[in-house]
Design a protein around this nucleic acid. Sequence first.
DNA 1: TATTAAATGGGAATGATTATCAATGTCAAT
DNA 2: ATTGACATTGATAATCATTCCCATTTAATA
Lengths: 148, 148
Amino acid sequence: MSGPRKLKHRFEGYASRLTAPREAILEFLSKSSKHMSAKEIYASLHGSYPGIGLSTVYRTLDLLARMGIVTKLAIGDGQSRYEFKSKEKDEHHHHLICTNCGKIINYSEFLDEELGLVKKTEERLAKKYNFIIQDHNIEFLGICEKCK
Amino acid sequence: MSGPRKLKHRFEGYASRLTAPREAILEFLSKSSKHMSAKEIYASLHGSYPGIGLSTVYRTLDLLARMGIVTKLAIGDGQSRYEFKSKEKDEHHHHLICTNCGKIINYSEFLDEELGLVKKTEERLAKKYNFIIQDHNIEFLGICEKCK
DNA sequence: TATTAAATGGGAATGATTATCAATGTCAAT
DNA sequence: ATTGACATTGATAATCATTCCCATTTAATA
């Protein structure tokens, strides 16, 4: 089963349709490795999809986040960023954020140990607090090379 | 040296004064274990400090965050929360966040292992990416008991 | 094709945060 | 103690991201 078709099934599970604007947004996000704001996505899409509306971008991002296809991340500068959540294990990463300029670096080194511990902690927390744990965020904050 | 006096020194280091409204905000935050929004802090302060302005609350929170006295945290619901950052090791904690109702649980069990790994990862990242690492956030996202 | 609910785009509304500014407070030097 | 130089404050307006609303369009299915 091809990628788009698989996605279509997932949308149906959400009583949602895989429409043209949604496909455009997904297509765009899946190719971008950056953490983009809604406005940036909207602006970038104007080439390939001139008529798209900002509301649709927001609505779609929200839907994708609820579906678990996209991660919404807040670095505290007043706008949310979105990133495609790859299923590939080797693309999993955590973040290193510059508190001065907002630059975000994905790091995926050193993750094996982290993920082992994360999994264990997850199980413990789930049991103790009766939570269903769906995701985790690990980020390090500091000052980047340029801002030093 | 007493607590307030120590704080006063820290403010001087920032070319800032430990004024009455700032002291009120600090006092309030240090007693609250919750993660409060600026508006909530503003509202709560009206008893002890009727004349305080919302701008002052925002400005002070920003200053305290820059000074490292307070942690600003964004759970993605459009407003930032602030929490007093205790120097006490045994009050260090990470977060468990319900993506449905926004409830935040502090957990401090299971931290020893986490912190050991965090420290090691911090050193590695600092070297590799030439970052000065100042802080970290670890949070688990999921569905809480009530929202299940 | 006709029906129906979902989805869209544009504009208005909302709400958190920031900027502006005149008035006030504080410190240091005289 | 007074003055000068700034820092701080509170009120208000401005900004900006996000959400709401609604008339119109689109997609799925009978």
